[in-house]
Nucleic acid binder design. Sequence first.
DNA 1: GTTGCATCAATGTC
DNA 2: CGACATTGATGCAA
Length: 661
Amino acid sequence: MASSSLKSTPLSPSTPLASSKHLSQKSPLQSSLSGITSPHTPNATPSQNPTFTPGCILTPDLCDILSNQIAPSDTDDPAFIPFLRCAQEQLAAYKSLLVQVQNDENALALVQATNDSPQTNRHIKPLKQPKELVRITALSQEEVSKWREVNRRARIAYESLRCHYHLQYIRDPQVRETTKVDRSDLKAFTELHKLGPHLVSYLQADKRIVGPIPGVEIGDIFFHRAELSLLGLHGPIQAGIGYAPGVFVQENEPIAASIVASGGYEDDRELEEDVLLYTGSGGKGRNDSHVSADQSLERGNLALERSMNYRIEVRVIRGMQLEPNSGRKLFVYDGLYRVVDCRRGNSQSGCLVYQFKLLRIRGQNQLGSKTIRIAIETKAKLAENIIPSGYVSPDISGGKEAMPVLLFNDVDKNNHPMYGPMMYEYLKSPEYPFSSKASAMKGCQCRPTCSDKCPCKEKNGGTFAYDNGVLLHGRPVVYECGNGCHCAATCSNRVTQKGIRYQLEVFRSRDTQWGLRSLDPIQAGTFICEFSGDVVLRDIVKQGSECQTVLIDPRKFPMRWHHWGNLSAVFPEWKPFESPVLEEQPEYFLDVSRRNNVACYISHSEYPNAFIQFVLYSHDDVKFPRMAVFAMENIPPLRDITLDYGCSTDLDQGDNSLEGE
DNA sequence: GTTGCATCAATGTC
DNA sequence: CGACATTGATGCAA
């Protein structure tokens, strides 16, 4: 799994980790919570649950995780709440919900009851179960990766559902009439919840998670509150304090497990990096930052106070303004904090408010919001032509890209991308041999923007490929409006041809030599960059002597685009997009040994956060599709952008790379 | 490009 | 249970 941290975070020496296999990976949380961690032998071992067939959502892993919750040891704090253990009956209760992922490859983290039509089981509810608070610890690196994958698929499902409802709202006047405001975010969330409440936010209903959420990393970013709820990071869709009511706790007292700090109260402040002052809830109108009534010690406020008492760790999510003028917010997971102080005081407006002081638990990775702030500051400096230290070049593309491409190296003196052994030439886009065909590529006549009857839409199999710059779903190839089209440059069917939109930087890495990252937060489904180099015909390479050059093979990338926008788990009738059919395979390689661009610095990962989507616009020869890189998930600033190059075996011509899935 | 306002929907509470 | 209250959200009109 790609780790973007250049710094070496020393592990806390206090306790040996449960799994020593992956010591080099970051897992400081395990040590910081080690006082309450003592894995016990679960009663329900996976093998004793034969009803949980492979591919079911109740995989052995989940059983393990459920049974792995730990009762706190008394050594940490005698006042600690005794947590309930996961009992066998609870696992058994899930059996009635036993649901099968129909097609493991394409299935999202969603489920559907067996032997029932989807219509009838849309409203399944979890059985009555004892409610409990759990803490999940000591996951192996492998399990963490697995959960990241589960989370990612749930978020892909969410994102494409959201786009689905958004488009429906825009296009269908009847829908607009019944619902007056486009809340496709909430709608998508509801739909996912109906389908698999116990999975989507997998322990939402009868279990609440205290502490880290499996598969959610510090620094992960979100564009909607519903996404936080989806993963169980922060339950409430609006409220700032996420807490479990008393019934979840033996003492019958509410316990807060997460907060969203987005500066909605006038009295909020941040004293130092690891200290957070948080105003309790209540006493103001919904869109008001002005407190106009006294707050009281109940609900969330009470829960936070109780969490302080019992020394419960609290997940902190920060809401940040995406751009200074836009109303959109970005949410960042900043890790675990402990409430250390709770006091009543007068707000600026004179009313009584509760103020909580939270301290960040030590040993965690750098604050996600700090990383973002660094990125924002760096951008601001660059805008004023100040080059911050570590930056070797303000633009290795020499003005060829739509956005400058930074070069950063604080590791060594190697400035390879600029002054390589052979003196690279920066090439923005490949020169495909059929550029003369451009005129032959039939364009649309739409003016000023493309209509429903646009022939380019038809070429895409009847639907446009993008919504507001977001790829709706992966397909064999995307046809954008091109030179031959009469629509305006603002046409929404022109995306990759406009070039890079994010502030990218090539950076030196000890792990991967070079890597690519962005100073801007990258939204899942958006275009990052395109591969470029010298086009070499495939058959020439085959006949020719063994090539010494570095070749990028378009056939070799696994079909990760298959996952993007796949809704078959939500709508059973939904089919993965096979149109337009790619009748012929790419017939070329890219030689990136002399001329190349930013894309060739993207590093490889088995769990990539980006994928390759073939795109055509300047010509329509499917033997020469462009290799466009799209984001598979939201990528936070300064995190390594990674691709699956399918490079398990060398010298494999990649002819089999299109099978499977 | 701002601001106010109406409308969303989940969850806790009674 | 079902109704009601509460909520650092969100999009859209003005």
